[in-house]
């Protein structure tokens, strides 16, 4: 492909909250719209949700990644957004998924993931590595 691939990974806090049922509905809505919009423009990625925080990977043509990312950034429902990775990449991490979804575990609460998110929001570089490897791990387990 001649077009440059861009990947951005960010974590968001407080965007989705409420009861279990509410959270599930909101996540379904986000995933459905992401899958619908992303596949149209060649953007793939993954979403990891855990205890009111989520991490999202967006990868694809720079222009479209920028547009999708900007839509997310202008959403006032996010309380805090931390970008943990952004740059040109050679290959996609999730080539098969318009938006893969990784559930963190039963009841959507996993201590390991919580700790990783806490590290990200505290500005620790280890948090980034942890979130990325958790994403890949959880998706591999689900596959």
């Amino acid at each position: 492909m001649s077009e440059r691939l861009h990947r951005i990974v960010y974590c968001s806090k407080g965007c989705i909250s409420g009861g279990e049922e509410e959270i599930r509905r909101e996540l379904d809505r986000i995933l459905a719209s992401a899958r619908r919009n992303n596949s149209r423009v060649g953007v793939t990625g993954a979403l990891l949700y855990n205890a009111e925080c989520f991490a999202q990977v967006l990868e694809g043509p720079q222009e479209h990644v920028e547009t999708i990312f900007e839509t997310i950034q202008s959403d006032v429902r996010h309380h805090e957004i931390a970008v943990i990775e952004s740059g040109v990449v050679r290959d996609r991490l999730f080539p098969e998924w318009s938006m893969a979804y990784a559930a963190a575990g039963p009841g959507s609460h996993n201590t390991q993931v919580t700790e990783a998110f806490d590290a990200v929001f505290a500005g620790s570089p280890e948090g980034t590595t942890q979130v990325l490897s958790l994403l890949e791990q959880l998706l591999a387990n689900q596959a």
Binding site: R4, H6, I8, Y10, Q62, V65, E66, F69, E70, Q73, S74, V76, I81, V83, S86, G87, V88
Partner: peptide, 10 residues
Amino acid sequence: VMRRSFLIEG
């Protein structure tokens, strides 16, 4: 919202 990152030309 303005404090958040902007992704511009990569």
